[in-house]
């Protein structure tokens, strides 16, 4: 595969022993311990990242999800990542399409995903902008909640997480996140 056309420097900030990093890349192609998939309650993978998981990961992921069945709002479940470069996928079910109690649900989802990653001793975990894009979570709210919850989890406990990656898809998203990450962590 050819390299990346639009190369953007990662933005990195250390919080305790954990590095929080913003990158522009392909979430489902990252060589990480785990990445987070913004899941539906019925755990159907669908299109978008779900499509990439099926194409790159093979049938194994869906099989595991079928066995699990469903996930509650704000909760997360974990599967292997099939043939992908990542080892695990954390399927975190967050709020969608401006539903009521959006912020509280998003916080719970973020917290569940981070805690599940920690419980499985993952060292590197990558997040998409949670709920932003197709599911309509406003970018400001998404960034605020994600960064605050990451900070809260890292302050609350000793964690296995050495690196938390926020992986955006394009330069537009990167530009919007860059200053927010820098400002939040100082």
């Amino acid at each position: 595969m050819s390299g990346t056309l639009i190369e953007l420097p990662s933005v990195e900030r250390k919080l305790g022993k954990t590095m929080v990093t913003l990158i522009k890349d392909d979430l489902t192609a990252l060589p990480v311990d785990g990445f987070v998939f913004y899941a539906r309650e019925d755990l159907a993978l669908g299109s978008g990242y779900g499509n990439a998981i099926q194409q790159r990961g093979g049938a194994a992921v869906k099989k595991e999800l079928d066995a699990i069945g469903s996930v509650g709002m704000g909760e997360a479940v974990i599967t292997t990542a099939g043939a992908m470069k990542a080892r695990y996928i954390i399927h975190a079910c967050g709020p969608k399409f401006h539903e009521p109690d959006l912020e509280a649900k998003l916080r719970r989802t973020m917290r569940s995903a981070l805690e599940l990653a920690d419980r499985h001793d993952l060292k590197t975990v990558a997040f998409p902008p949670m709920g932003y894009g197709f599911y309509g979570v406003p970018l400001d709210l998404c960034a605020t909640v994600m960064l605050e919850e990451i900070a809260a989890v890292l302050e609350d406990r000793t964690t296995s997480l050495e690196k938390i990656i926020i992986c955006v898809t394009d330069k537009r998203e990167y530009d919007a996140w860059k200053d927010r990450v820098a400002q939040f962590f100082g």
Binding site: G48, N51, F97
Partner: peptide, 27 residues
């Protein structure tokens, strides 16, 4: 905005948001 759309519209829009093209063609 409130998640009411034909299934096919949702499929294509999500592919375009997350994969970068409307048919989910991987790089």
């Amino acid at each position: 905005h409130v998640g009411i759309m034909p299934e096919g519209v949702a499929t294509v829009a999500k592919d375009q948001w997350e994969i970068g093209n409307q048919m989910g063609v991987l790089k």
